[in-house]
């Protein structure tokens, strides 16, 4: 998981990645490589296939055709948990937490997954201080320390979004996939997440993918933008150049994105 990767070797790569739902091609032969230290924004109108593209990479749905490579290994046939343990991290567009566990337990269960301690049946959960400290550190980063004993289902929406990101951080992945992390957040909460994304990027060795509709956010964070349209990759390049291209202008100025729906 931690092998050094020369920058010309991509950390993550998809080749001809395709999925078909009935007659509908949701992701259509997408080939793209992502390198360590880079943040790639994935944009496109609603229903373009961005979330589905993520689902194919992290293994939530099986591919119809094409492959996913992580550090050169073909992971296309691996189940989700194996991909996660190899370093793929995912924060979901639709908040996806453990509702009856507390905020602290939510993060801790992810920290424990990273530590590979799930099959310990006989020690006391409350005795593992190292896991608890790590969880506390992550709660601090997502500004949820004061809510640590609240059940996840009782959190306000913005805090649930932060916890969603916290669960991914706890996994210490190599690849971070953010799916509209700030959607529905209040203005004063957004910087917590954006600063966090910047901090991860500054580490220099992580690979970040970000689905985001807000162009100002994309402009601020991304090194590169790819555009999906009807499941097809239609543009790929420097942010300024892509934003100025007719296809993005049309997609974003033609119809304002509607964030109320989506798939996880």
């Amino acid at each position: 998981m931690n092998q050094p990767t020369p920058s010309h070797h991509p950390v993550l790569e998809t080749r001809g990645l395709t999925v078909r739902f009935g007659g509908h091609v949701a992701v259509n032969s997408v080939s793209c490589a992502f390198h360590a230290g880079s943040l790639t924004a994935i944009v496109g109108p609603n229903g373009a296939g961005k979330t589905t593209y993520f689902n194919l990479i992290s293994g939530q749905i099986p591919t119809t055709a094409g492959e996913v490579f992580l550090f050169g290994e073909n992971i296309s046939k691996l189940p989700t948990p194996s991909r996660t343990r190899r370093g793929i991290g995912r924060a979901f567009q639709l908040t996806n937490l453990f509702p009856f566990l507390t905020v602290q337990e939510n993060v801790r269960i992810a920290v424990q997954a990273r530590a590979g301690m799930g099959l310990d049946l006989f020690s006391l959960w409350s005795n593992h201080r190292e896991l608890l400290e790590k969880a506390e550190y992550i709660l601090e980063q997502v500004a949820l320390t004061s809510q640590r004993y609240t059940q996840a289902r009782a959190l306000p929406h913005g805090d649930q979004r932060k916890l969603e990101v916290g669960l991914m951080l706890a996994l210490e992945p190599e690849v971070f996939m953010f799916d509209e992390p700030t959607a529905g957040m209040s203005v004063d909460e957004v910087p917590v997440i954006l600063d966090l994304i910047k901090k991860i990027k500054e580490q220099g060795n992580k690979t970040l993918l970000l689905v985001e509709h807000k162009m100002d956010v994309v402009r601020e964070l991304a090194d590169r933008i790819i555009v999906l349209h009807n499941g097809t990759l239609v543009a790929d390049g420097e942010p300024e150049e892509v934003i100025a291209s007719p296809i993005v202008q049309e997609a974003y100025l033609g119809a304002a994105p509607d964030k109320s729906k989506g798939t996880r």
């Binding site: 939530q60 989700t80 006989f122 959960w125």
Partner: peptide, 21 residues
């Protein structure tokens, strides 16, 4: 135990439990 908490997490949301590994 750590195992027992994973069971609870699976009960709550098996999709996410798989997603975190």
């Amino acid at each position: 135990s750590p195992f027992g908490r994973v069971l609870q997490a699976i009960r709550d949301n098996e999709f996410r439990a798989a997603a975190i590994g």
